[in-house]
Write a protein that binds this DNA or RNA. Structure first.
Lengths: 133, 133
DNA sequence: CGTTACGTTTACGTTCACGTCATCTTTCCT
DNA sequence: AGGAAAGATGACGTGAACGTAAACGTAACG
């Protein structure tokens, strides 16, 4: 028995700190596909996994449309070989992008640290008693 | 003699692959402060460094307003100790954010690689002759 | 049996980050 | 002198990603 309780929209909002509008918007954009109990949306474990990926993608600066593509990558089910192959190729592209971004981020971090070291030295000169940091 | 030739707006656009509108917009938002020769904007080496940081920040998903704050970090000149100390504190915050983002990005990369490995196995099953990748 | 709480759809409003005219100067070239 | 090229300043338009308000359904609670 996998923990596959479905959640209401309200529960989702609290769990992920988003608004109902956002979840409905993502559904309209076909990033989420919650099932229905009559009118009401029911979010499964799968939906939660997808939302997690969506929010992460956003933090990395991807657009919702880019994220929509990416979501299928975590989704490579038993589809046709042609489709699977296409998806795999797309994944390679995105992987390269993410690795490039990571490298650039590391560079940025290093530069910022340099700047901070400079600032720390200046602060030390100005007030040798109470150090910086 | 440091290579400190000033550039026109057109030259900047070609060098950084942005439009004139973008540069004027950044100036309006006080992210850039090019000098003037009469009406015309003149972009110094310093402006180019700032623009590079701006574009990088955007790729990391920061808003222009956040970037505007960040820019001062690469800028800690001989200001008052109070100001310098404030800037340093802000830098620490941003550094932490960037490191968190890097860690998350590494995690995301690892997960994506996992998924791709799964896909590669499936592809191999489907067509043992021509491998994936 | 009313009302409170949670959910729905529809539709217009808003912010950010520019794009796209329209309309001037300034400058350089022939 | 005349005209193209580059740059400037408004001002309005646009796509993405939601916010917000209106109007409605329904299920439980006192």
């Amino acid at each position: 028995m996998t923990t596959d309780r479905t959640m209401t929209i309200r529960e989702m909002c609290e769990a992920f700190d988003v608004t109902p509008r956002t979840l409905r918007f993502y559904e309209a954009k076909e990033l989420l596909h919650p099932r229905r109990d009559g009118q009401k949306r029911l979010f499964s474990k799968r939906d939660r996994a997808r939302l997690k990926l969506i929010l992460r993608g956003k933090r990395f600066g991807f657009s919702l449309e880019e994220i929509r593509q990416l979501l299928d990558l975590y989704h490579m089910d038993d589809s046709q070989e042609t489709q699977l192959r296409k998806t795999y190729a797309l994944a390679e592209t995105h992987l390269a992008e993410m690795e490039a971004q990571r490298d650039e981020l590391n560079e940025a971090i290093a530069e910022l640290k340099d700047q901070m070291a400079w600032g720390a030295r200046r602060l030390k000169e100005l007030a040798p008693d109470r150090a910086a940091g």
